[in-house]
Computed example of a mutant assay.
Amino acid sequence: MNVIPCEQNEELRRRIEDYAETLKVEAHKLGMHGLTEQEFYNSGLFRGAIERIRGQFSATMREKRDFVFRVLNHMQDGGFIADWTSAGDSNRHDYSIRLPTGRVAVIELKGCLDGNNTNIFERPPHAQEFIIWSVCTNPGADPRHNVWSGIHTRLSAEIIFRSQSALTG
């Protein structure tokens, strides 16, 4: 068994690649921009629109937060954690959890681990446990690659750069 049990949907990945190629080639025909094909591709309009859409998808945390809410409530109902709270927008982390032993665990919720925001984390001083939890909602993502990339090229490099221990913070 692989350490990462999730797998990428190969058929969906292929269809996404095909559609993306069609979109790149035919994008100048969409919308009422009034530009020629050459003007369109030289204008930055297409790239700007793609980045805007990408940012809008990345910024939405509702689906991830709903999932985490259900998981943490289930853990609390089962007695695995004593209680939990959302840390709110003013904190760098997302959730604080009190374990049955009284220890405090803090969760920093991330999307797919292959992006730059993986490097943005700060273990708060009150955290006795610090967890970076990846909830990747991109159906075209490769979970095995994203976890490998996140750990090996992002998290470990950042921890080394900060001269931190993964165990002691």
Rank of each mutant, 00 (worst) to 15 (best):
S149T: 13
H145W: 15
G48R: 05
D77N: 09
I97T: 08
V104C: 01
E17M: 06
F130Q: 01
T60G: 04
F161I: 05
N91T: 08
I132L: 15
S165D: 10
V71R: 03
A59F: 04
D114F: 12
R162E: 09
R65C: 00
H93G: 05
S58I: 01
N42L: 03
I53V: 12
M75P: 01
N117G: 01
S86W: 08
G115V: 15
E129Y: 14
G88L: 12
Y95H: 09
H93A: 10
L99N: 10
M75L: 11
R52C: 04
R162W: 01
L155V: 15
C112R: 14
A27V: 02
V71A: 04
N9W: 11
T101D: 12
P5D: 07
E10L: 14
I50A: 12
A49M: 09
M32G: 06
Y95S: 07
A157I: 01
T22P: 01
K110N: 09
A105W: 06
S163N: 02
D18N: 05
C136A: 12
Q38L: 03
A141T: 00
N91E: 03
E63G: 02
F161V: 03
V106K: 03
V3W: 01
K110H: 08
Q56A: 12
W133D: 14
N2V: 07
M61W: 02
P5K: 14
L23T: 10
E17F: 02
S96E: 12
I97L: 10
S165F: 11
S43G: 07
M32L: 08
P125N: 09
T60D: 11
Q164E: 13
G115I: 09
I131K: 06
R123S: 12
W84A: 02
